[in-house]
């Protein structure tokens, strides 16, 4: 599985509006506990779609997808793989 975490982290820095420095978060840390709001998660989703040239299908449009860098990475691996 390709490692998407660096790109996800840079999107979170630009669009996540987190209360903490993204660099201090582990891949499994809760982004919601780090201050990710619903509105910000939409912006993160749209930015990730641009970066990875994918579209999040309905099955991924739920809070758990955006819960952690790890979960986003798993979702994107699935999407990028399907698109390739």
């Amino acid at each position: 599985m390709p490692d998407h975490t660096q790109l996800i982290r840079s999107v979170l820095v630009d669009h996540g509006r987190l209360a903490v420095d993204v660099a201090t978060l582990s891949d499994s840390a809760s982004l919601y506990e780090a201050g990710l709001t619903s509105h910000a998660s939409v912006n993160v989703m749209l930015a990730l779609e641009d970066e990875f040239d994918v579209e999040f299908p309905e099955r991924f449009l739920k809070r758990t997808t955006f819960e952690s860098i790890e979960n986003l990475s798993v979702a994107l691996a699935d999407l990028v793989h399907v698109d390739a």
Binding site: S38, S41, V42, E58, L61, K62, R63
Partner: peptide
């Protein structure tokens, strides 16, 4: 729209 779908899910889950 699609971004809205995430907002709806999120609003309901919370």
């Amino acid at each position: 729209g699609r971004a809205g779908r995430l907002m709806k899910m999120s609003q309901r889950e919370q």
